[in-house]
Simulated assay, not measured.
Amino acid sequence: MDQLHPTYAPFASRRVTVRGVDYAFTDTGNSGFPVLLLHGWPDDRSIWRHQLPYLQSQGFRVISVDWIGHGESAIPTDTRRYRISELGADTIALLDTLQLDRVHLIAHDYGATVSWETVANHPTRFSSYCALSVGHTVEILQDIATGHLLRYLWLILHGMDRASRYWYLSNEAQRFRHKFAAHPDAERILEKLTHGGDTTFWTIWEKANPSYDAIYRHFFTEQRQKRITVPTLGLYSREDEWMTEGQLARSYKHVDASWRYESMRGGHWVQLERPDEVNAILGSWLAQVEPC
């Protein structure tokens, strides 16, 4: 089992069974309105270690979760269990288990990919939504189709487990160190990848959610009709090494509610790199959308 970043230690870890699998999470447990934090690749819930105490100090009850296959949560062997639709169902089941009627949702990277769909499918469970770095899936596909394919070749690489690890780890992990230069936890992630035992976390998102499946669901099923009907914030960091700005900036096209867009300096893991600035934006956003 992975150990969370040491600075996350003051916050007790809890576990709950959700749709047959064990999820690890942190819950500040106070009586404020709940905020749910969802991480992405290749992280765990300790990526929010600067936001959790800040939001708690603002009076919110803060819950951060390890996705299955990550951190201290279970590691199902069935790849289908990691599909976006399955993780969305887990999100709602978690809220039910914790008896939370509605939450503010803040999500990063693949956590945001899951959340765009989850919020569209279950709008009554969310008072607001904030997506960091990653926009609506349709807009990512649009970028790929209109000249940004090379920027997203990692989507294909990450779907090939052995090839992906070899590419990152060859030549004494030079490519890894280059691509993750802005990640404050890069050495910890490298240690998990090389000596941490189970490496499901490294490629499971792409293996479970190939591009052709995203195309099919968002263009040929009822998912294409689903809209975001809660207040939504997009937060992009301009030195992002993995995502273009357009895919997030254009995501307003899928929102039938108030939309706010912010861009700032920083790399893909901006909540770790520039936590005070991110916290100020999140605090301002939550004050703006505070439930009655």
Rank of each mutant, 00 (worst) to 15 (best):
V230A: 07
Y252V: 07
S237C: 05
K253V: 02
I228L: 13
H254N: 01
E245W: 04
T232F: 07
A214I: 12
T244I: 02
K253P: 00
S258M: 00
T244R: 05
H254A: 01
R238Y: 04
S211K: 11
K253M: 07
V230F: 10
G234Y: 11
R224P: 10
A214L: 15
V255G: 00
K207C: 02
Q223M: 08
R217E: 15
Q225F: 14
A214K: 14
Y212N: 10
I228T: 13
D240W: 07
A249I: 05
I215P: 03
R250Y: 08
L235I: 14
S211F: 05
P231E: 12
L233M: 02
T232V: 12
P210Y: 08
F219A: 14
F220T: 15
L248C: 04
G246F: 02
G246Y: 05
T232K: 09
G246E: 11
R227L: 10
Y216M: 10
S251I: 04
F220E: 14
R250P: 01
Q225D: 14
Y252G: 03
E241R: 13
W259T: 09
F220Q: 14
G234P: 13
Y216F: 14
W259R: 05
K253W: 04
K226G: 05
D256V: 01
D256H: 08
F219C: 11
W242G: 00
A214T: 13
S251D: 09
M243P: 00
K253E: 10
Y236S: 05
S237F: 07
F219K: 06
F220G: 06
F220C: 14
N209E: 10
R238E: 15
E222V: 12
L235R: 09
E241Y: 08
P210W: 09
